[in-house]
Design a protein around this nucleic acid. Structure first.
Length: 943
RNA sequence: GCGGGAGUUGCCUAGCCAGGUCAUGGCGCAGGGCUUAGGACCCUGUGGGUUAGUCCCGUCGAGGGUUCAAAUCCCUCCUCCCGCACCA
């Protein structure tokens, strides 16, 4: 009978829910296990990538549950931040890709309307996500669902920030934020929720070099990321077609491009735009270069990007391809200079000043690379970009400052950079300037700039004492994979203060003591497993947001103060406190690799800061991604075909779960391949039919092989124990799923036919397999006559394993393959197969050899009378043993046991090879092949 | 740059931390079985050689080294991927 996963899966999901298997209540009599995954934000339907981690979580939860733990496995929604806002905006704008996506996932017209507001999006997915989890067979405590923008959660976040503040871990200081000149703060990130252009822009801190004009007190200001190259400056570049402004910055007057002038007003304190400057009036004049204190000429160039920087560029032709090519263009085409009344002869006199010695290049690498790539002129942008990359990375990493660099001569470039920067700023010859690496435009169409915010709130992750405590705790945690365990202390070290609030429009909790700020999404998701204890009470209406005062939460979470006087019954407060102490700490937090430097470090640190040591987390499990073709799965790249509501209509959930657990290690990225899922589906079909048919057709007949079956599957389960503890699901499944399937097939092939034996073996396998592919296991469990829910049953007990029976069957299997090999080589079908059982003395020798080191074997064996009396034959066998030391069988049967095992297998062999099978003792035959017999590997003679 | 990950046989993947019994499993391909046929399924093979099986040679990005023994440990190099913060 064929197995229909779709109806079966729904049936059992319903049964599990009705039985309340996921509902977690404290039970002091049972050990507890608290695990959760990094909760998702409402950015769309789940796709096959999300479900990887959720499946692992469920597998672990199920295993722990079956192993007798009281498991708390709750779920939540991370609604804070941009995603819901961005989602709603697209729906409201009737973005065609979005509407198509919603339709493909089966959203009704009516529901689409609800998705036009961020709150609507959150509400929708707060219902949708649990549905999708359930459709994947995930047994969680859905009654504890929490959401980061619900009032109870917000109360909890307020509490957390009050605690951080009390501990002195919140600080205010200036910050350079991305800012739309019209709408205020915006997020610049690849999702481009707030912006319409420039999602990949990076915020960079430049050094602004000040060049005093020779004939005035004003400064031309150029920005650079390579301040150490000031020693090679030969001239300044400005764009003759650009618009420039005079700007008063404090007591100085700067000349920069118009765009930069505006930017300055946002990031410097005392700035005033004074008026326009015609660049043509500046061309040909000279200005004093900082660092080298020499006048250099101002020349025209056409490669300047006025959107980035100040529109003024200092020229270092030795190490900047743009600058070199700019000069070369002027040398070759003096008419450009005459246009602006500049004497070409003056420009011809400019000499490139070598400043950096880079291995593999001359002292003017820019020239080398420009010529190597044969860059035509300054408009050859593509090649120039490449040249820039080569020169910069080589120069920066391997270069050394040369004798033209004053006191920095001999210093590696990467070291000189910081020192030169400091010196220039301290002497007042330079300043800092923040800019975005490319143009960024807000959704409203206005420009996005960097604005200095004076009172930005930070979480002080730089605090050394906090770091040390966190690192020490991280070392005591169980963190998988091991490489991440090793790097966690480094990651914590690398962590700097994190801006934890923002202004502007997105979802989140207001900072309790400074209401103009909204707490940022990563920062409100650090201590949140606590909410999974409280949400049981808030969702039931027993604990209301207004009860969740600082004092009550202090009592519940820190044990401070009294259970009384909080507006809820004392008994309830005590109950919640007890429940918190029961479940906490978190045993395992599961998340994707993107959280290695995002969520997990702050998760550890916030627990360490706020909660008592006995409540600090114990484990982290990081898994890698399921990727689409050529990278991350996204909605725009045909994401709908891999979204969960769609794919579960087509593929069985167990097959997908098996795919996650078996196709690759959790610790590598894996490209999603539906064909492979289909294969797994077929394996499951096969498993189902093999198991059910074997059971339904079996009779009462008892055979040797019955004992073998139960032993064999028990051994598999026992052998996979270690892999299970390491969450190496692939290895577990190799044994328990694929291995057991082979065993069942072998049992059938060998004529096994006993209902009770099949049932006993199957039950063991199903118990061990249920966490991975629960639906099909549950179905078979009932088909073989059980009425309980398998998912609520216990992990299989491993009965004693009959090693001899296992060894005997392995011998038969190997023998069959040997016979096959010989037939292949001979090329003809035998009528008769004679098997010779190795004599007892070879067994004695083998056991003895096992105890000896390879060098002693021959000598040691020849001391045995049983071997010595065999003469040459004995030596030959001893040599054989030496050679095969590593592959000797673990279990060796006696001669008679082996003979009887072969005899009982002769019926099978005879059928398999369509030949008469005869078993003889080697010593009783004078057939020349008989001498080849070794224990557990009979000699074979075909005729 | 800083931090992290990875290069395996036609393809995907396992093995690497704890060196030897081992290049694993799947896909694809080939042969056979079953079938009216096709598919599915089952068996066998799939680097090369091989005298009837325990054999020989080759192979885990490249090159060195350690070792009786290296995909695995060490060094150098090459290539690819990811994150770098108010973004989940």
């Amino acid at each position: 009978m064929a197995y229909d996963p779709f109806s079966v899966e729904r049936k059992w999901q319903k049964a599990w829910e009705e039985a309340g298997l996921g509902k977690a209540e404290p039970d002091p009599g049972k050990p507890k296990f608290f695990l959760h995954f990094a909760y998702p934000g409402p950015s769309g339907f789940f796709h096959v990538g999300h479900m990887r981690g959720y499946t692992y979580s469920d597998v672990i939860a199920r295993i722990k549950r079956m192993q007798g733990y009281n498991v708390l496995f709750p779920v939540g929604i991370h609604a804070t931040g941009n995603p819901a806002v961005g989602f709603a905006t697209k729906v409201k704008k009737k973005d065609p890709v979005m509407l198509e996506y919603l339709k493909e996932n089966g959203v009704s017209e009516q529901d689409i309307q609800k998705l036009e507001t961020p709150e609507g999006v959150v509400d929708f997915f707060a219902e949708e996500y649990p549905r999708e989890w359930k459709s994947f067979g995930i047994i969680a405590d859905y009654g504890r669902l929490t959401c980061t923008i619900w009032p109870d959660y917000q109360k909890f976040i307020e509490w957390q920030f009050k605690k951080l503040n009390e501990l002195g871990l919140l600080v205010q200081k200036p910050y350079y934020a991305t800012f739309c000149v019209r709408c205020g703060p915006v997020a610049v990130d690849p999702s481009e929720t707030d912006i319409s252009k420039g999602g990949n822009a990076r915020k960079e801190e430049y050094v602004a070099l000040k060049f005093k004009l020779e004939d005035s007190d004003e400064y031309l200001v150029a920005v650079t990321l390579r301040p150490e190259t000031v020693y090679g400056q030969t001239n300044l570049w400005i764009d003759p077609e650009g618009e420039y402004s005079r700007v008063r910055v404090g007591s100085e007057v700067w000349v920069v491009c118009k765009q930069a002038a505006e930017k300055l007003t946002y990031q410097k304190d005392d700035v005033e735009i004074l008026g326009d400057v015609d660049p043509k009036d500046l061309l040909g004049k000279k200005a004093i270069a900082p660092g080298i204190h020499k006048p250099i000429p101002i020349l025209p160039a056409h490669f300047i990007d006025l959107e980035v920087g100040t529109g003024v560029v200092t020229s270092v032709p030795s190490d900047a391809p743009d600058d070199y090519i700019g000069l070369r263009d002027l040398w070759e085409n003096p008419s450009e200079l005459e246009k602006y009344g500049i004497d070409p002869e003056e420009v011809k006199k400019i000499k490139v000043i070598p400043i950096i010695k880079t291995p593999g290049y001359s002292d003017t690498p820019a020239k080398d690379v420009v010529e190597e790539l044969s860059v035509k002129n300054q408009f050859d942008r593509e090649k120039l970009e490449e040249a820039k990359k080569i020169v910069y990375s080589k120069g920066f990493h391997t270069g050394v400052m040369n004798e033209n660099c004053g006191k920095y001569a001999g210093m590696p470039v990467n070291k000189a950079k910081e020192l030169v920067k400091q010196e220039l700023i301290e002497s007042g010859e330079a300043d800092t300037f923040w800019d975005l690496s490319e143009e960024v435009v807000c959704r409203c169409g206005s420009r996005v700039v960097i604005k200095k915010v004076d009172d930005q709130w930070f979480i002080k992750y730089s605090d050394p004492e906090w770091k040390e405590k966190s690192k020490a705790h991280a070392r005591s945690m169980r963190i998988l994979p091991p490489e991440y365990y090793e790097s966690m202390p480094q990651v914590i070290d690398w962590y700097d203060d994190r801006a934890c609030t923002r202004m502007g429009t997105w979802l989140g909790t207001k900072l309790p003591f400074d209401q103009k700020w909204i707490i940022e999404p990563i920062s409100d998701s650090t201590l949140y497993p606590v909410m999974y204890v409280l949400s049981k009470y808030t969702n039931a209406g027993k604990l209301k947001p207004e009860h969740m005062t600082e004092e009550l939460l202090d009592y519940l979470l820190l044990g401070k103060g009294s259970p009384e006087g909080h507006g809820i019954p004392k008994e309830l407060a005590e109950e919640i406190r007890r429940e918190f102490e029961y479940w906490y700490p978190v045993d395992l937090n599961i998340g994707g690799k993107e959280h290695k430097t995002v969520h997990f470090p702050v998760y550890v640190m916030n627990h360490v800061a706020v909660l008592k040591p006995e409540h600090w987390p114990k484990g982290i499990f990081v898994h890698w991604w399921i990727t689409g073709k050529g990278g991350k799965i996204s909605k725009s790249k045909g994401g709908a075909s891999t979204s969960i509501p769609v794919i579960t209509k087509r593929r069985s959930v167990d097959a997908l779960r098996l795919y996650y657990c078996h196709s690759a290690s959790p610790f590598v990225d894996s490209e999603f391949d539906e064909g492979t899922v289909e294969q797994y589906e077929e394996h499951l079909q096969k498993f189902y039919s093999l198991a059910t048919e074997l059971y339904s057709k079996a009779g009462e007949e008892e055979k040797e092989i019955d004992k073998w079956l139960e032993s064999r599957v028990s051994k598999r389960i026992a052998d996979s124990k270690e892999s299970l503890e390491e969450y190496n699901f692939k290895r577990v499944l190799d044994q328990v799923f694929f291995g057991s399937m082979q065993d069942l097939a072998w049992y059938q092939k060998r004529g096994g036919n006993n209902k009770q034996a099949v049932k006993r073996a199957l039950e063991k396998v199903l118990r061990a397999l249920c966490p991975f592919v629960p639906h099909v296991c549950e179905e078979i469990w009932h088909e073989i006559g059980n009425t309980s829910l398998l998912s609520a049953e216990s992990w299989p007990e491993v009965t004693q394993v009959d090693e001899k029976a296992i060894a005997a069957e392995e011998m038969v299997q190997n023998l069959a393959s040997d016979i096959r090999e010989i037939i292949r080589l001979v090329g003809k079908k035998p009528a008769r197969i004679v098997l010779f059982v190795a004599p007892e003395w070879k067994r004695i020798a083998l056991e003895k050899a096992r105890e000896l080191s390879p060098k002693e074997v021959i000598k040691g064996l020849m001391q045995l009378p049983e071997v010595r009396e065999k003469g040459k034959e004995g030596v030959k066998y001893a040599q054989f043993l030496v050679k095969h030391m590593k592959e000797l069988p673990d279990t060796v049967l006696s001669r008679d046991e082996e003979k009887s095992a072969l005899e009982s297998a002769s019926e099978y062999l005879s059928k398999e090879f369509d030949a008469e099978v005869l078993v003889q003792l080697a010593e009783e035959s004078d057939n020349p092949k008989a001498g080849n017999a070794v224990p557990m590997k009979p000699a074979v003679f075909l005729e």
